[in-house]
Design a binder for these strands. Structure first.
Length: 494
DNA sequence: CTAGGGTTAG
């Protein structure tokens, strides 16, 4: 009886927005009934904690549950991966592999996605290997995640191989493949697959259209884009905010602001089946308007962007982010900061993109003080862990201002893996400020991180040369030649 | 007995 009560309570909670406080109360309730030992309840609690980014509590529940189901493992791994705590996710995965519970198709899907978000092509191949060994090579769930990950990392051929290996791809598989092409800008390929799936009798949905239209990046594709738009209207299958916002972006990329605005305002047009408006209300406005605001700013019509923003009755974090980024990229730092203040006043919770936009604004305006302050506030006041892009902005900001040592110290404190983006940003600042000492250190690190990139070694060799270290130049070049690297046209040797 | 987990936007 009590158990049934709890079940229905859990069900209700899982339907509604779950706050951290409510999760803690629920957790306490479950502890008093000794139900924590049931992996079912433990899984739910972990999920709720994960939604509230309380990974410590989630992990505690995981550790205290001795009877671990696949669900339990997966939810913990997923929690880490979603918060970009990749190291924890991967080490837990390793632990799982040596436990008696075997990873399933969803575990591998999760890990593939984590590799993608970590930009880890090598790890992805290893994961793919594991998938094949486990006999999951033909599974829809795993394969669609692999297709997405491979194509996002630029390995389109591998993505196609995975896709082609599956006999009768389901809708999600098709969508993954088509968005993969779209993302990479291969619009012909996307169209080809779109036609193929329709010939095979598969009906596209909103995801398909969004993925397809992603690849339309040129004015000459306007007619085809309009065709797809017409197709959406005709089918009426899922003329959702996502679809419409991607159409707005598509029209803006194709330089057709008129149509973009038409899609935006189509919500209030009476001739679109009425039921849709009733069903979605004006919630859906938010996403489409965000795309429109973003488009106006990118096209240089900042005032129009602001106007659309002001007319929106219901705003969201996303649209605030768009406008802050819009202001920032036009060098309007004070307006960006003002809007950030307004957003806090209205009770919106900034996310990692908000700070990305703010730091970008600071970096454009060259305001070191504001940059430092907001980087600090992000972690301390808002509990948002800095991601690589935040570091890149800070390094650019500090580096351009000549604070090269501070920038380098910041890199040393990075809790996420240092990549070539961060180091590259610092290196160019070293070059600008003529600091060849630090430049040498950075170029060296870069050539270690990405040994296959000749350009970094050439850069390093040039810096050695400018520092008068001819012996090092010679050793490096001899090594390069030993590795079979030829002098390529386009790369300038001193 | 029950479950979540794979593909869209900035």
């Amino acid at each position: 009886m009590f158990n049934r009560c709890l079940s229905s309570l859990l069900y209700q909670l899982s339907q509604s927005h779950q706050t951290l406080l409510a999760t803690k109360q629920l957790h306490a309730l479950i502890i008093t009934t000794y139900l924590t030992y049931d992996p079912f309840y433990a899984t739910r609690i972990i999920r709720f904690y994960a939604l509230n980014h309380d990974l410590h509590s989630a992990r505690k529940v995981f550790d205290e549950t001795s009877n671990r189901s696949v669900y339990l493992w997966n939810s913990m791994i997923r929690a880490y991966a979603q918060d970009h705590l990749f190291e924890n996710a991967f080490s837990l995965f390793e632990q799982m592999r040596s436990s008696e519970v075997k990873p399933d198709n969803y575990t591998f899907a999760c890990i593939s996605r984590a590799c993608m978000e970590k930009f880890d092509g090598f790890g992805l191949r290893v994961t793919h290997g594991g998938v094949v060994v486990m006999g999951l090579g033909l599974d829809f769930v795993t394969s669609s995640a692999l297709v997405t990950a491979y194509s996002k990392l630029g390995f389109l051929e591998e993505a196609c191989k995975v896709f082609n290996g599956v006999v009768e791809p389901d809708l999600v598989m098709w969508n993954s493949m088509i968005s993969g092409f779209g993302n990479a800008g291969f619009w012909e390929k996307g169209l080809e697959f779109f036609c193929r799936m329709r010939k095979m009798g598969r009906n596209p949905d909103g995801y398909t259209v969004v993925g397809l239209v992603l690849g339309f990046v040129d004015g000459c594709l306007l007619r085809i884009g309009e065709g797809i738009h017409g197709f959406c209207l005709k089918c009426g299958f899922d003329y959702s905010p996502h679809v419409r916002s991607s159409l707005v972006s598509m029209y803006s990329r194709c330089h057709c602001l008129h149509s973009a605005y038409r899609v935006f305002s189509s919500l209030s047009r009476p001739d679109l089946i009425h039921a849709y408006i009733l069903r979605c209300g004006f919630e859906s406005d938010v996403m489409v308007a965000s795309a429109l605001v973003d488009m106006y700013f990118k096209c240089g019509f900042s005032d129009l962007g602001v106007q659309v923003f002001k007319t929106m009755t219901r705003k969201s974090v996303i649209v605030y982010n768009s406008v802050i980024l819009g202001f920032g990229s036009h060098g309007l730092l004070s307006q960006a900061l003002k809007l950030f203040g307004e957003m806090l006043e209205k009770g919106f919770k900034p996310d990692h993109s908000t700070f990305s936009a703010l730091l970008c604004a600071c970096s454009h305006a060259g305001s070191v003080q504001d940059g430092r302050e907001h980087f600090h506030r992000m972690e301390v006041e808002f509990g948002i862990a800095a991601r690589v892009e935040h570091y890149v902005h800070m390094v650019k900001l500090l580096g351009m201002a000549g604070e090269l040592e501070e920038a380098y110290d910041l890199i040393k404190t990075m809790s996420v893996p240092v990549n070539s983006g961060v180091l590259g940003a610092l290196l160019s600042c070293c070059v600008i400020h003529g600091n060849s000492e630090l430049g040498e250190t950075i170029a060296h690190q870069l050539s270690v991180i990405e040994p296959e990139k000749t350009a970094y070694k050439v850069m390093l060799s040039n810096i050695y040369a400018s520092n008068g270290k001819w012996d090092d130049v010679k050793t490096l070049r001899d090594n390069m030649i030993g590795e079979g690297l030829q002098k390529k046209p386009g790369i300038s040797w001193i």
